[in-house]
Write a protein that binds this DNA or RNA. Structure first.
Lengths: 209, 209
DNA sequence: GTCGGCATGTAAGCGGTTACATGATTGG
DNA sequence: CCAATCATGTAACCGCTTACATGCCGAC
Protein backbone atom coordinates (compact mmCIF):
# COMPACT_ATOMS: atom_id res chain seq x y z
CA UNK A 1 0.00 0.00 0.00
CA UNK A 2 2.42 2.66 -1.22
CA UNK A 3 -0.33 5.09 -2.20
CA UNK A 4 -0.51 6.22 1.40
CA UNK A 5 3.24 6.96 1.43
CA UNK A 6 3.18 8.68 -1.92
CA UNK A 7 0.55 11.01 -0.47
CA UNK A 8 2.48 11.51 2.77
CA UNK A 9 5.61 12.20 0.74
CA UNK A 10 3.89 14.78 -1.40
CA UNK A 11 2.35 16.50 1.61
CA UNK A 12 5.70 16.40 3.46
CA UNK A 13 6.84 19.25 1.21
CA UNK A 14 3.75 21.42 1.68
CA UNK A 15 0.00 21.05 2.12
CA UNK A 16 -2.14 20.36 -0.92
CA UNK A 17 -5.61 19.40 -2.09
CA UNK A 18 -6.87 16.09 -3.41
CA UNK A 19 -6.93 17.61 -6.85
CA UNK A 20 -3.28 18.68 -6.55
CA UNK A 21 -2.39 15.08 -5.73
CA UNK A 22 -4.46 13.81 -8.60
CA UNK A 23 -2.59 16.06 -11.03
CA UNK A 24 0.78 15.17 -9.53
CA UNK A 25 0.08 11.50 -10.11
CA UNK A 26 -0.43 12.36 -13.78
CA UNK A 27 2.86 14.24 -13.89
CA UNK A 28 6.01 14.26 -11.72
CA UNK A 29 5.13 11.79 -8.99
CA UNK A 30 3.38 9.69 -11.59
CA UNK A 31 6.69 8.46 -12.99
CA UNK A 32 7.14 6.52 -9.79
CA UNK A 33 3.62 6.00 -8.50
CA UNK A 34 0.23 6.72 -9.94
CA UNK A 35 -3.36 6.75 -8.79
CA UNK A 36 -6.75 7.98 -9.94
CA UNK A 37 -8.77 10.56 -8.08
CA UNK A 38 -11.33 7.86 -7.27
CA UNK A 39 -8.67 6.18 -5.18
CA UNK A 40 -7.19 9.35 -3.71
CA UNK A 41 -10.25 10.89 -2.07
CA UNK A 42 -11.24 7.81 -0.04
CA UNK A 43 -7.61 7.31 1.00
CA UNK A 44 -7.36 10.94 2.16
CA UNK A 45 -10.45 10.35 4.30
CA UNK A 46 -8.94 7.21 5.85
CA UNK A 47 -5.63 8.98 6.47
CA UNK A 48 -7.43 11.85 8.14
CA UNK A 49 -9.30 9.41 10.37
CA UNK A 50 -5.97 7.75 11.20
CA UNK A 51 -4.51 11.11 12.24
CA UNK A 52 -1.78 11.09 9.59
CA UNK A 53 -3.02 14.25 7.90
CA UNK A 54 -5.26 17.18 8.79
CA UNK A 55 -8.14 18.25 6.60
CA UNK A 56 -9.03 21.93 6.47
CA UNK A 57 -11.81 23.50 4.40
CA UNK A 58 -10.86 26.68 2.59
CA UNK A 59 -13.56 29.00 1.33
CA UNK A 60 -12.76 29.80 -2.26
CA UNK A 61 -15.96 31.66 -3.01
CA UNK A 62 -19.38 31.75 -1.35
CA UNK A 63 -20.45 28.53 -3.06
CA UNK A 64 -17.18 26.64 -3.38
CA UNK A 65 -15.26 24.80 -0.72
CA UNK A 66 -11.95 23.07 -1.25
CA UNK A 67 -9.98 21.11 1.26
CA UNK A 68 -6.29 21.27 1.94
CA UNK A 69 -4.53 18.42 3.61
CA UNK A 70 -1.40 18.87 5.68
CA UNK A 71 0.82 16.24 7.20
CA UNK A 72 0.68 15.81 10.98
CA UNK A 73 3.63 14.93 13.25
CA UNK A 74 2.26 11.40 13.36
CA UNK A 75 2.10 11.36 9.57
CA UNK A 76 5.69 12.56 9.27
CA UNK A 77 6.83 9.88 11.71
CA UNK A 78 5.02 7.27 9.64
CA UNK A 79 6.64 8.59 6.45
CA UNK A 80 10.08 8.45 8.05
CA UNK A 81 9.49 4.95 9.37
CA UNK A 82 8.51 3.80 5.88
CA UNK A 83 11.38 5.62 4.15
CA UNK A 84 13.87 3.89 6.46
CA UNK A 85 12.37 0.43 5.89
CA UNK A 86 13.85 -2.08 3.47
CA UNK A 87 12.67 -1.65 -0.12
CA UNK A 88 10.24 -4.30 -1.34
CA UNK A 89 9.88 -5.58 -4.88
CA UNK A 90 6.54 -6.55 -6.32
CA UNK A 91 6.31 -9.74 -8.38
CA UNK A 92 7.35 -8.98 -11.93
CA UNK A 93 4.51 -8.41 -14.36
CA UNK A 94 5.73 -7.30 -17.74
CA UNK A 95 3.09 -7.96 -20.35
CA UNK A 96 5.30 -6.56 -23.12
CA UNK A 97 8.07 -9.13 -22.55
CA UNK A 98 5.51 -11.90 -22.14
CA UNK A 99 3.98 -10.91 -25.44
CA UNK A 100 7.36 -10.88 -27.13
CA UNK A 101 8.23 -14.37 -25.92
CA UNK A 102 5.08 -15.81 -27.44
CA UNK A 103 5.23 -13.68 -30.59
CA UNK A 104 6.80 -16.61 -32.39
CA UNK A 105 3.13 -17.57 -32.73
CA UNK A 106 2.45 -14.32 -34.61
CA UNK A 107 5.74 -12.87 -35.84
CA UNK A 108 4.19 -10.65 -38.49
CA UNK A 109 3.73 -7.77 -36.05
CA UNK A 110 7.15 -7.77 -34.42
CA UNK A 111 8.20 -4.57 -36.15
CA UNK A 112 5.19 -2.71 -34.78
CA UNK A 113 5.92 -4.17 -31.36
CA UNK A 114 9.46 -2.80 -31.24
CA UNK A 115 8.40 0.53 -32.69
CA UNK A 116 5.71 0.95 -30.05
CA UNK A 117 8.27 0.09 -27.40
CA UNK A 118 10.63 2.77 -28.66
CA UNK A 119 7.83 5.35 -28.84
CA UNK A 120 6.73 4.61 -25.29
CA UNK A 121 10.18 4.81 -23.72
CA UNK A 122 11.28 7.79 -25.82
CA UNK A 123 8.31 9.71 -24.44
CA UNK A 124 9.15 8.64 -20.91
CA UNK A 125 12.81 9.53 -21.33
CA UNK A 126 11.95 13.00 -22.64
CA UNK A 127 9.50 13.72 -19.86
CA UNK A 128 11.87 12.51 -17.16
CA UNK A 129 14.82 14.41 -18.62
CA UNK A 130 12.82 17.63 -18.84
CA UNK A 131 11.68 17.34 -15.22
CA UNK A 132 15.19 16.50 -14.03
CA UNK A 133 16.61 19.51 -15.86
CA UNK A 134 13.99 21.69 -14.17
CA UNK A 135 14.87 20.36 -10.75
CA UNK A 136 18.63 20.74 -11.20
CA UNK A 137 18.15 24.27 -12.59
CA UNK A 138 16.00 25.16 -9.55
CA UNK A 139 13.03 25.79 -11.80
CA UNK A 140 10.77 23.21 -10.19
CA UNK A 141 8.57 25.15 -7.73
CA UNK A 142 7.63 22.29 -5.44
CA UNK A 143 11.13 20.84 -5.29
CA UNK A 144 12.44 24.36 -4.63
CA UNK A 145 10.00 24.61 -1.73
CA UNK A 146 11.33 21.34 -0.33
CA UNK A 147 14.93 22.49 -0.72
CA UNK A 148 14.23 25.86 0.95
CA UNK A 149 12.86 24.17 4.04
CA UNK A 150 16.01 22.16 4.62
CA UNK A 151 19.43 22.94 5.98
CA UNK A 152 22.01 23.24 3.16
CA UNK A 153 23.55 19.80 3.82
CA UNK A 154 20.14 18.14 3.83
CA UNK A 155 19.01 20.07 0.77
CA UNK A 156 21.96 18.61 -1.13
CA UNK A 157 20.73 15.13 -0.14
CA UNK A 158 17.19 15.92 -1.31
CA UNK A 159 18.45 17.07 -4.69
CA UNK A 160 20.87 14.17 -5.09
CA UNK A 161 18.16 11.60 -4.36
CA UNK A 162 15.90 13.12 -6.98
CA UNK A 163 18.77 13.16 -9.43
CA UNK A 164 19.49 9.50 -8.73
CA UNK A 165 15.86 8.45 -9.09
CA UNK A 166 15.27 10.37 -12.30
CA UNK A 167 18.61 9.57 -13.94
CA UNK A 168 18.10 5.91 -13.08
CA UNK A 169 14.76 5.84 -14.86
CA UNK A 170 16.17 7.84 -17.77
CA UNK A 171 18.99 5.31 -18.17
CA UNK A 172 16.44 2.52 -18.03
CA UNK A 173 14.34 4.17 -20.75
CA UNK A 174 17.43 4.57 -22.93
CA UNK A 175 18.30 0.94 -22.37
CA UNK A 176 14.83 -0.12 -23.50
CA UNK A 177 15.14 2.03 -26.62
CA UNK A 178 18.51 0.53 -27.54
CA UNK A 179 17.13 -2.92 -26.82
CA UNK A 180 14.18 -2.43 -29.17
CA UNK A 181 16.52 -1.02 -31.80
CA UNK A 182 18.55 -4.22 -31.62
CA UNK A 183 15.26 -6.02 -32.21
CA UNK A 184 14.57 -3.91 -35.29
CA UNK A 185 18.10 -4.46 -36.61
CA UNK A 186 17.61 -8.18 -36.26
CA UNK A 187 14.35 -7.96 -38.22
CA UNK A 188 16.14 -5.97 -40.93
CA UNK A 189 18.99 -8.46 -41.15
CA UNK A 190 16.74 -11.52 -41.00
CA UNK A 191 16.07 -12.92 -44.47
CA UNK A 192 12.35 -12.71 -45.10
CA UNK A 193 12.45 -16.38 -46.03
CA UNK A 194 9.31 -18.17 -47.00
CA UNK A 195 6.50 -15.92 -45.80
CA UNK A 196 4.91 -17.67 -42.85
CA UNK A 197 1.37 -17.30 -44.04
CA UNK A 198 0.45 -20.77 -42.91
CA UNK A 199 -0.15 -21.06 -39.20
CA UNK A 200 2.32 -23.45 -37.66
CA UNK A 201 1.98 -25.85 -36.04
CA UNK A 202 -1.29 -26.68 -37.78
CA UNK A 203 -4.35 -26.75 -35.61
CA UNK A 204 -4.54 -30.53 -35.56
CA UNK A 205 -1.51 -30.65 -33.29
CA UNK A 206 -3.58 -30.14 -30.19
CA UNK A 207 -5.02 -33.64 -30.45
CA UNK A 208 -3.58 -36.53 -28.52
CA UNK A 209 -0.50 -34.84 -27.18
CA UNK B 1 -5.68 -9.68 -17.90
CA UNK B 2 -2.38 -11.14 -19.08
CA UNK B 3 -2.64 -14.19 -16.82
CA UNK B 4 -4.87 -15.82 -19.40
CA UNK B 5 -2.26 -15.26 -22.13
CA UNK B 6 0.62 -16.41 -19.95
CA UNK B 7 -1.31 -19.66 -19.48
CA UNK B 8 -2.15 -19.94 -23.18
CA UNK B 9 1.48 -19.26 -24.03
CA UNK B 10 2.73 -21.94 -21.67
CA UNK B 11 0.24 -24.49 -22.97
CA UNK B 12 1.04 -23.54 -26.58
CA UNK B 13 4.29 -25.49 -26.18
CA UNK B 14 2.72 -28.61 -24.67
CA UNK B 15 -0.10 -29.57 -22.30
CA UNK B 16 0.41 -29.19 -18.58
CA UNK B 17 -1.33 -29.29 -15.21
CA UNK B 18 -2.33 -26.44 -12.94
CA UNK B 19 0.52 -27.38 -10.69
CA UNK B 20 3.00 -27.19 -13.58
CA UNK B 21 1.80 -23.68 -14.28
CA UNK B 22 2.05 -22.77 -10.64
CA UNK B 23 5.69 -23.90 -10.54
CA UNK B 24 6.51 -22.16 -13.82
CA UNK B 25 5.24 -18.88 -12.41
CA UNK B 26 7.74 -19.33 -9.58
CA UNK B 27 10.54 -20.00 -12.06
CA UNK B 28 11.07 -19.27 -15.77
CA UNK B 29 7.79 -17.64 -16.75
CA UNK B 30 7.78 -15.90 -13.41
CA UNK B 31 10.45 -13.45 -14.55
CA UNK B 32 7.86 -11.95 -16.87
CA UNK B 33 4.55 -12.81 -15.24
CA UNK B 34 3.63 -14.41 -11.97
CA UNK B 35 0.54 -15.81 -10.29
CA UNK B 36 -0.42 -17.89 -7.28
CA UNK B 37 -2.15 -21.23 -7.56
CA UNK B 38 -5.24 -19.69 -5.99
CA UNK B 39 -5.53 -17.53 -9.07
CA UNK B 40 -4.56 -20.20 -11.57
CA UNK B 41 -7.14 -22.90 -10.83
CA UNK B 42 -10.21 -20.65 -11.15
CA UNK B 43 -8.77 -19.12 -14.33
CA UNK B 44 -8.22 -22.58 -15.82
CA UNK B 45 -11.87 -23.36 -15.11
CA UNK B 46 -13.02 -20.16 -16.81
CA UNK B 47 -10.74 -20.80 -19.80
CA UNK B 48 -12.09 -24.32 -20.13
CA UNK B 49 -15.63 -22.98 -20.07
CA UNK B 50 -14.66 -20.45 -22.73
CA UNK B 51 -13.33 -23.25 -24.94
CA UNK B 52 -9.75 -21.94 -24.98
CA UNK B 53 -8.32 -25.06 -23.36
CA UNK B 54 -9.39 -28.66 -22.83
CA UNK B 55 -9.35 -30.30 -19.43
CA UNK B 56 -8.60 -34.00 -19.23
CA UNK B 57 -8.42 -36.09 -16.06
CA UNK B 58 -5.50 -38.48 -15.85
CA UNK B 59 -5.59 -41.35 -13.40
CA UNK B 60 -2.30 -41.32 -11.55
CA UNK B 61 -3.23 -43.99 -9.03
CA UNK B 62 -6.52 -45.41 -7.80
CA UNK B 63 -7.02 -42.49 -5.41
CA UNK B 64 -5.39 -39.61 -7.23
CA UNK B 65 -6.64 -37.67 -10.19
CA UNK B 66 -4.73 -34.93 -11.89
CA UNK B 67 -5.86 -32.80 -14.78
CA UNK B 68 -3.91 -31.82 -17.84
CA UNK B 69 -4.91 -28.83 -19.85
CA UNK B 70 -4.19 -28.51 -23.55
CA UNK B 71 -4.70 -25.53 -25.81
CA UNK B 72 -7.57 -25.72 -28.32
CA UNK B 73 -7.55 -24.24 -31.83
CA UNK B 74 -9.69 -21.42 -30.46
CA UNK B 75 -7.15 -20.90 -27.69
CA UNK B 76 -4.27 -20.79 -30.14
CA UNK B 77 -6.13 -18.25 -32.27
CA UNK B 78 -6.71 -16.13 -29.20
CA UNK B 79 -3.03 -16.36 -28.26
CA UNK B 80 -2.00 -15.30 -31.76
CA UNK B 81 -4.45 -12.43 -31.80
CA UNK B 82 -3.03 -11.18 -28.49
CA UNK B 83 0.61 -11.69 -29.52
CA UNK B 84 0.02 -9.58 -32.63
CA UNK B 85 -1.69 -6.77 -30.70
CA UNK B 86 0.08 -3.57 -29.65
CA UNK B 87 1.97 -3.86 -26.37
CA UNK B 88 0.40 -2.03 -23.46
CA UNK B 89 2.20 -0.44 -20.54
CA UNK B 90 0.75 -0.44 -17.05
CA UNK B 91 0.98 2.75 -15.00
CA UNK B 92 4.35 2.88 -13.32
CA UNK B 93 4.40 1.75 -9.71
CA UNK B 94 7.91 1.59 -8.34
CA UNK B 95 7.84 1.70 -4.57
CA UNK B 96 11.63 1.51 -4.36
CA UNK B 97 12.15 4.75 -6.31
CA UNK B 98 9.30 6.41 -4.44
CA UNK B 99 10.96 5.45 -1.18
CA UNK B 100 14.30 6.79 -2.35
CA UNK B 101 12.84 10.16 -3.30
CA UNK B 102 11.42 10.67 0.16
CA UNK B 103 14.40 9.17 1.97
CA UNK B 104 15.68 12.69 2.57
CA UNK B 105 13.27 12.40 5.50
CA UNK B 106 15.22 9.41 6.86
CA UNK B 107 18.65 9.34 5.19
CA UNK B 108 20.24 7.10 7.84
CA UNK B 109 19.19 3.93 6.02
CA UNK B 110 20.24 4.85 2.50
CA UNK B 111 23.19 2.47 2.53
CA UNK B 112 20.94 -0.48 3.41
CA UNK B 113 18.54 0.65 0.69
CA UNK B 114 21.17 0.54 -2.05
CA UNK B 115 22.61 -2.72 -0.77
CA UNK B 116 19.20 -4.38 -0.80
CA UNK B 117 18.70 -3.09 -4.34
CA UNK B 118 21.97 -4.64 -5.47
CA UNK B 119 21.17 -7.94 -3.75
CA UNK B 120 17.76 -8.12 -5.39
CA UNK B 121 18.93 -7.38 -8.92
CA UNK B 122 22.09 -9.49 -8.62
CA UNK B 123 19.88 -12.46 -7.81
CA UNK B 124 17.60 -11.68 -10.73
CA UNK B 125 20.53 -11.25 -13.11
CA UNK B 126 22.05 -14.58 -12.07
CA UNK B 127 18.78 -16.46 -12.42
CA UNK B 128 18.02 -14.93 -15.79
CA UNK B 129 21.55 -15.51 -17.09
CA UNK B 130 21.49 -19.16 -15.99
CA UNK B 131 18.16 -19.76 -17.71
CA UNK B 132 19.30 -17.98 -20.88
CA UNK B 133 22.48 -20.05 -20.99
CA UNK B 134 20.37 -23.20 -20.67
CA UNK B 135 18.10 -22.14 -23.51
CA UNK B 136 20.93 -21.19 -25.85
CA UNK B 137 22.76 -24.43 -25.03
CA UNK B 138 19.59 -26.39 -25.81
CA UNK B 139 19.46 -27.66 -22.24
CA UNK B 140 16.04 -26.25 -21.44
CA UNK B 141 13.57 -29.14 -21.92
CA UNK B 142 10.43 -27.13 -22.48
CA UNK B 143 12.07 -24.61 -24.81
CA UNK B 144 13.62 -27.55 -26.69
CA UNK B 145 10.15 -29.01 -27.07
CA UNK B 146 8.92 -25.74 -28.51
CA UNK B 147 11.88 -25.55 -30.92
CA UNK B 148 11.40 -29.14 -32.09
CA UNK B 149 7.84 -28.49 -33.09
CA UNK B 150 8.76 -25.66 -35.39
CA UNK B 151 10.25 -25.43 -38.85
CA UNK B 152 13.95 -24.44 -38.69
CA UNK B 153 13.32 -20.82 -39.73
CA UNK B 154 10.61 -20.41 -37.15
CA UNK B 155 12.63 -22.14 -34.45
CA UNK B 156 15.34 -19.52 -34.95
CA UNK B 157 12.71 -16.84 -34.32
CA UNK B 158 11.53 -18.59 -31.15
CA UNK B 159 15.07 -18.75 -29.79
CA UNK B 160 15.92 -15.18 -30.80
CA UNK B 161 12.83 -13.80 -29.08
CA UNK B 162 13.71 -15.61 -25.86
CA UNK B 163 17.25 -14.33 -26.13
CA UNK B 164 16.01 -10.78 -26.61
CA UNK B 165 13.60 -10.96 -23.68
CA UNK B 166 16.11 -12.48 -21.28
CA UNK B 167 19.09 -10.39 -22.34
CA UNK B 168 16.95 -7.27 -22.07
CA UNK B 169 16.04 -8.07 -18.49
CA UNK B 170 19.63 -9.05 -17.70
CA UNK B 171 20.86 -5.70 -19.00
CA UNK B 172 18.21 -3.97 -16.95
CA UNK B 173 19.31 -5.83 -13.80
CA UNK B 174 22.93 -4.85 -14.47
CA UNK B 175 21.89 -1.25 -14.97
CA UNK B 176 20.11 -1.27 -11.61
CA UNK B 177 23.18 -2.73 -9.92
CA UNK B 178 25.47 -0.07 -11.40
CA UNK B 179 22.95 2.58 -10.47
CA UNK B 180 22.85 1.47 -6.84
CA UNK B 181 26.66 1.31 -6.81
CA UNK B 182 26.75 4.94 -7.89
CA UNK B 183 24.48 5.61 -4.92
CA UNK B 184 26.87 3.84 -2.58
CA UNK B 185 29.85 5.72 -4.01
CA UNK B 186 28.06 8.97 -3.40
CA UNK B 187 27.42 7.95 0.21
CA UNK B 188 31.10 7.07 0.60
CA UNK B 189 32.25 10.37 -0.87
CA UNK B 190 29.71 12.46 1.01
CA UNK B 191 31.23 14.04 4.13
CA UNK B 192 29.35 12.66 7.12
CA UNK B 193 28.87 16.27 8.24
CA UNK B 194 26.96 17.08 11.37
CA UNK B 195 25.08 13.90 12.17
CA UNK B 196 21.43 14.59 11.43
CA UNK B 197 20.10 13.26 14.69
CA UNK B 198 17.56 16.03 14.98
CA UNK B 199 14.50 15.55 12.83
CA UNK B 200 14.19 18.36 10.37
CA UNK B 201 12.05 20.26 9.84
CA UNK B 202 10.89 20.17 13.44
CA UNK B 203 7.42 18.88 14.08
CA UNK B 204 5.98 22.31 14.72
CA UNK B 205 6.32 23.15 11.04
CA UNK B 206 3.02 21.55 10.23
CA UNK B 207 1.10 24.37 11.87
CA UNK B 208 -0.33 27.28 9.91
CA UNK B 209 1.30 26.58 6.62
C1' DG C 1 -24.34 30.01 -23.07
C1' DT C 2 -21.37 26.44 -23.44
C1' DC C 3 -17.05 24.37 -23.03
C1' DG C 4 -12.96 23.05 -20.78
C1' DG C 5 -10.75 22.82 -16.56
C1' DC C 6 -11.36 22.79 -11.46
C1' DA C 7 -13.00 20.08 -7.71
C1' DT C 8 -14.96 16.21 -5.01
C1' DG C 9 -17.06 12.38 -4.38
C1' DT C 10 -19.51 7.11 -4.89
C1' DA C 11 -20.27 2.33 -6.88
C1' DA C 12 -19.46 -1.83 -9.39
C1' DG C 13 -16.30 -4.96 -10.80
C1' DC C 14 -11.82 -7.15 -11.48
C1' DG C 15 -7.33 -8.98 -10.57
C1' DG C 16 -4.19 -10.32 -7.11
C1' DT C 17 -2.86 -11.65 -2.18
C1' DT C 18 -3.37 -14.14 1.94
C1' DA C 19 -5.37 -17.53 4.39
C1' DC C 20 -8.10 -21.60 4.89
C1' DA C 21 -8.84 -26.39 3.60
C1' DT C 22 -8.04 -31.17 2.11
C1' DG C 23 -5.70 -35.20 0.77
C1' DA C 24 -2.05 -38.32 -1.79
C1' DT C 25 2.70 -39.59 -2.69
C1' DT C 26 7.60 -40.10 -1.97
C1' DG C 27 11.79 -40.45 0.54
C1' DG C 28 14.36 -40.61 4.71
C1' DC D 1 6.03 -42.56 10.85
C1' DC D 2 6.93 -38.04 9.59
C1' DA D 3 8.14 -34.36 6.66
C1' DA D 4 8.38 -32.40 2.23
C1' DT D 5 6.40 -32.12 -1.98
C1' DC D 6 2.67 -32.97 -5.11
C1' DA D 7 -1.91 -31.55 -6.20
C1' DT D 8 -6.34 -29.00 -6.22
C1' DG D 9 -9.43 -26.22 -4.68
C1' DT D 10 -12.35 -22.08 -1.91
C1' DA D 11 -13.05 -17.62 0.71
C1' DA D 12 -12.14 -13.12 2.43
C1' DC D 13 -9.99 -9.14 1.61
C1' DC D 14 -7.57 -5.34 -0.63
C1' DG D 15 -6.03 -2.17 -4.14
C1' DC D 16 -6.91 -0.43 -8.58
C1' DT D 17 -9.86 0.61 -12.74
C1' DT D 18 -13.86 2.15 -14.94
C1' DA D 19 -17.89 4.33 -14.82
C1' DC D 20 -21.30 7.18 -12.74
C1' DA D 21 -22.47 11.57 -10.56
C1' DT D 22 -22.55 16.47 -9.30
C1' DG D 23 -21.49 21.22 -9.40
C1' DC D 24 -18.50 25.63 -9.82
C1' DC D 25 -15.53 28.72 -12.34
C1' DG D 26 -13.37 31.44 -16.04
C1' DA D 27 -12.78 32.30 -20.91
C1' DC D 28 -14.60 32.78 -25.39
Amino acid sequence: MSLRYAILGYLSTAPGTGYDLSRQFDAGLGWFWSANHSQIYPELRRMTEAGLIDREPIKVTANLDKFTYSITPKGRDELRRWAASKPTYAPNRDSERLQLIFSDEAPENLRAHFEAHIAYFAFRRNQLAATLADMLGHKHPRVNLRLDRRRPDDAAVTLKLRELAYSGDIARAELEIEWAQRGLEWLDAKPAGVPTTQAWPPHEDHLDE
